[in-house]
C-alpha cells in the first residue's frame, strides 16, 4: 500500500486520466499525434473518438465503483457488478430489442430494454434472497448466480431461434461495444454515474462499517438494512446503466477495485472517487489496446478486459484461498 495523502493521489490520478484520455483520442484505425488531433481538419474524427473516450470513461468508472460497493456490502473481494444477474437480464433485454426490431425505431430501444430487464433480474435476486447477516449476503450471491444462469439460458434460447443479422447484433452487443453511443444517452448515463459515485462517497464511512459485518455496523451506529439496500441499489443502477450503454464488459469491476485497494487501502471515502477515475482509465487503456492490437479488424473491448481479467480472477481467487489457510 502506498502511504500518500489524498492531496497527492488525486492530482496524480487526474494527470494519468488526462494522459489516457489523450491517448484514447490519438489511437484508432490509424494514429494521429496529440498535436494534430485537435486541428480543425480532424474535427469529425475528434468528435467520434471523443464520444468513444467519454463512453469508455463512464462505463469503466461505473463498473469499478459498482464493484467496490458490491465487495463492501457482500464482504467478498471476489464479488463484481454482474454477480447479481444484471448482465444476464440486460442481455435478454438487448436481445428482445434486437429480435423485435425495436432497435431500428429508436436508439434508446436497446439501452432502455437492457436497463429494464437488468432491473427485473436484480429485483428477482433480491426477492429470493432471505436470511440475516452473512447468510443473507451469501444468499444474495447464490440467487444472483442462479438468476444469471437462468437468464443466460433464456438468452441462448433466443439466440438459437434467430437469423444471422440479429445474431451478429446480439453478439456484438454482448462482447461490449464503446462505439456510437447516443450523445443524449451518454450525458444521462454520465450524470447518473457521477451522481451515484457522489452518493456512495457520502455513505463511504457506512460502507466501511458494513464491510465489517452487520453486527459491527450496528454497533458503530449504522443501520445495516438501510445501508445495504442503499449501496446495492446505487451500485446496481450504475452497473445497469453501464451495461445498457456499452453491453457486457466483464472484469473491470473486479480488477480495478483489487488494484486500487492494494495501492491505496480499503477506505471507501477515498476508494469511490478513485474507482471512478481508475475504472475509467483502465477501460480507456483497454480500448486503446483493442484498437491498436489488430487495426484491420477492431477487437471488442470486452474481449480485451476478459483476456486480462480471467487470469487476474484466478490469481485473486488463489491468493484469497492461500490467505484463508
Amino acid at each position: 500500500m502506498i502511504k500518500t495523502s489524498d492531496k497527492i493521489i488525486f492530482p496524480i490520478a487526474l494527470i494519468v486520466f488526462a494522459a489516457a484520455f489523450v491517448l484514447e483520442l490519438c489511437c484508432g484505425s490509424y494514429f494521429i499525434s496529440p498535436l494534430e488531433i485537435f486541428l480543425p481538419a480532424n474535427e469529425a474524427l475528434l468528435q467520434l473518438r471523443l464520444q468513444r473516450a467519454i463512453t469508455a470513461f463512464i462505463v469503466g468508472g461505473a463498473l469499478a465503483v459498482s464493484g467496490l460497493a458490491y465487495q463492501a456490502v457482500l464482504r467478498n473481494p471476489l464479488a463484481e457488478p454482474y454477480i447479481l444477474g444484471i448482465s444476464g437480464g440486460a442481455g435478454i433485454g438487448a436481445a428482445i430489442a434486437i429480435v423485435t426490431g425495436l432497435n431500428s425505431l429508436t436508439v434508446f430501444a436497446i439501452p432502455g430494454s437492457a436497463f429494464i430487464c437488468a432491473l427485473i433480474a436484480l429485483s428477482m435476486v433480491l426477492l429470493f434472497a432471505r436470511g440475516a447477516g452473512l447468510e443473507y449476503t451469501n444468499n444474495i450471491m447464490l440467487s444472483g448466480i442462479i438468476i444469471g444462469t437462468v437468464c443466460s439460458s433464456i438468452l441462448m434460447f433466443i439466440i438459437s431461434t434467430i437469423g444471422m443479422d440479429s445474431l451478429n447484433s446480439i453478439t456484438w452487443w454482448l462482447l461490449g461495444n464503446l462505439q456510437g453511443a447516443d450523445s443524449r444517452l451518454l450525458w444521462m448515463t454520465g450524470i447518473s454515474v457521477i451522481a451515484g459515485t457522489g452518493v456512495l462517497f457520502i455513505f463511504g464511512r457506512e460502507a466501511n462499517a458494513i464491510s465489517l459485518g452487520e453486527e459491527m455496523a450496528y454497533n458503530l451506529g449504522v443501520s445495516p438494512q438501510k445501508v445495504i439496500i442503499l449501496l446495492l441499489a446505487i451500485a446496481s443502477l450504475m452497473a445497469a446503466a453501464a451495461v445498457s450503454l456499452a453491453g457486457i464488459i466483464g472484469f473491470v469491476g473486479l480488477i480495478v477495485p483489487h488494484v486500487l485497494r492494494r495501492l491505496f487501502g480499503a477506505e471507501h471515502r477515498r476508494l469511490f472517487p478513485l474507482g471512478l477515475l481508475g475504472g475509467g482509465i483502465f477501460l480507456m487503456l483497454c480500448d486503446v489496446f483493442s484498437k491498436v492490437i489488430y487495426p484491420e479488424q477492431e477487437i471488442q473491448v470486452g474481449v480485451v478486459t476478459a483476456l486480462i481479467g480471467g487470469p487476474f480472477f484466478l490469481w485473486a481467487l488463489n491468493r484469497k484461498r492461500r490467505s484463508a489457510v
Binding site: 500500500m1 467478498n76 464511512r205 466501511n208 462499517a209 465489517l212 459491527m216 451506529g221 480499503a266
Partner: peptide
C-alpha cells in the same frame, strides 16, 4: 446509542484490508 454505548463483539472478520488506524477511526462514525 452508539455515541453512548460501545459494543465489542467476540471477534470481527474483515475481508478488506483496513489498517488499524482506519478501523479505530470507524469508532467516530456515530
Amino acid at each position: 446509542r452508539a455515541s453512548m454505548m460501545a459494543v465489542v463483539p467476540q471477534s470481527i472478520n474483515s475481508a478488506l484490508p483496513y489498517t488499524v488506524y482506519q478501523l479505530v477511526a470507524m469508532g467516530r462514525i456515530s
